[in-house]
């Protein structure tokens, strides 16, 4: 395994994240809606933990 500086490793991580976000942006709208519903469910798990009212989770046909 090649040794890399922390800065180099961090830069590679940031580049991977940027690529991942670009790929997420290019997904079809129907897949983005599925991801939204999943995010709404996860957000509600967090909200319950901090005693915030839950958000409505959409019902996709």
């Amino acid at each position: 395994m090649n040794a890399s500086s922390p800065a180099t490793i961090a830069e590679e991580i940031f580049q991977d994240k940027a690529r991942s976000r670009k790929a997420a942006a290019a997904l079809p709208i129907e897949e983005k809606l599925r991801r939204l519903v999943e995010m709404q469910r996860r957000a509600n798990q967090i909200r319950r933990g901090v005693a915030r009212p839950p958000m409505r989770v959409w019902e996709l046909a």
Binding site: A24, A25, L27, R35, M39, Q40, R56
Partner: peptide, 12 residues
């Protein structure tokens, strides 16, 4: 924004 960028959580 979903039609132009990645999905983000929203309620409405």
């Amino acid at each position: 924004g979903f039609f132009y960028a990645e999905a983000v959580v929203t309620e409405d």
